[in-house]
Computed example of a mutant assay.
Amino acid sequence: MSQTVRGVISRSTKAPTEVVDVVIPDPGARDVIVKIQACGVCHTDLAYRDGGINDEYPFLLGHEAAGIVETVGSDVTHVEVGDFVVLNWRAVCGQCRACKRGRPWYCFDTHNASVPMTLTDGTELTPALGIGAFAEKTLVHEGQCTKVNPETDPAVAGLLGCGVMAGLGAAMNTGNVGRGDSVAVIGCGGVGDAAIAGARLAGATTIIGIDRDPAKLEWATDLGATHTINAAEVDDLVTAVQDLTDGFGVDVVVEAVGRPQTYTDAFYARDLAGTVVLVGVPTPDMKLELPLIDFFSRGGALKSSWYGDCLPERDFPMLIDLYEQGRLPLDKFVTERIGLTDIEDAFAAMEQGKVLRSVVEL
């Protein structure tokens, strides 16, 4: 039988979110119902609310979540009732051209639940990133569930579902940061600071956090930056980075802002044959103009990082284990713990740069 739970929806562009009754149907053959314990408030949820993703309203927001498997479909084998899981939006299909080439982190046909969640009047909801976890329960495909250590704080574990994994993976997976490398991270919000933590974990010896907000630079230092640069206080950011690296620039720059100017700074702040990783999300109207000869003469690699090029089944349990060992301070990303009715305040705090993550606890 279907069941009704509380959830947070967005009905129209930039309209305030609402806590409403959400109908969870019986799961399809390979679907599961997860009782949500915690869900982080991510910029992507705000983008959904404001029409920055698509116009398939109403949206059931929330996607950075952890919880307990409550009900499973008839053909589910991946998880069992009672499993503690982190939800992910890259449930790889195993059959698309990326998966068959051995690059499943680029899967082009990821799985989602086979039946929709609805409002009580039957209106179908579009779950954020196929998850919809600002709710007491949600319905997802079994492949969207990754089992992790059940002793972990759900508010911490759930952060791997999106932003923190995006930053960690941008450094560790996409950027291939290694022992002794020098790294600069432009933009020290949640994703950028996760890249700093990832660079530290990977063994980078020089890690430069760059932002215009002194509070964010303090967060960056706390999470592993060896140096910081306040971009508002320097005339030339590229020169400032070179001054910290014997005039050469860094091996890897992670650009976590997503703007043409910060990308241009990232391009020139790297050493010859260095790597730029774009993880900040630009808007469709943005354009980049650089001399083509500079692309040729500097060499190296220019990469984009989607979801930190992660494989949830590989990466989530490993990162949780590192957290439990005290080697990865995931708990430092949890700035505040809130309820379902506090989403709009959390969006405002996020826009004002006051938090790394607000986390809804249920």
Rank of each mutant, 00 (worst) to 15 (best):
A155I: 09
T174Y: 04
G192H: 13
S182R: 07
G190Q: 04
A215D: 14
D251E: 15
N173Y: 10
T228N: 12
T138S: 04
A166P: 02
L244A: 09
V252T: 15
L160K: 07
E218S: 11
N230R: 03
Q242V: 00
A215I: 15
V191C: 10
V177Q: 09
T152C: 15
V140I: 14
C188P: 02
V177I: 15
A202P: 05
E151P: 00
T245Y: 12
I196D: 04
A171H: 00
A155N: 10
G161F: 09
Q144D: 02
P150G: 10
V140L: 04
Q144C: 11
A204Y: 11
I186Y: 13
T152D: 08
T138G: 04
K147M: 15
R200C: 03
T205K: 13
G161R: 07
E233A: 15
A215M: 15
G180E: 09
R212N: 10
A166Y: 01
L237M: 13
D213F: 10
G190K: 03
K216G: 01
A184S: 12
G180D: 02
L159Q: 13
N176C: 10
G198E: 13
D211K: 09
A204I: 02
L201S: 14
G192F: 09
D236F: 08
D211S: 06
N149S: 15
A171L: 01
R200Y: 00
D246I: 00
Q242S: 10
I186G: 05
H141N: 14
K147F: 05
C162W: 00
W219M: 04
E136R: 03
K147S: 11
M172G: 05
Q144F: 06
V164D: 01
P154R: 01
I208L: 05
G163N: 02
A155L: 09
L168V: 14
C162L: 04
I208V: 08
W219L: 03
D193F: 00
V140Q: 00
V238A: 10
C188Q: 08
P214H: 12
E142H: 08
C162A: 08
A166D: 01
Q144A: 03
G249S: 02
V185C: 05
E233W: 02
D236N: 15
D243N: 15
G163C: 06
L168F: 13
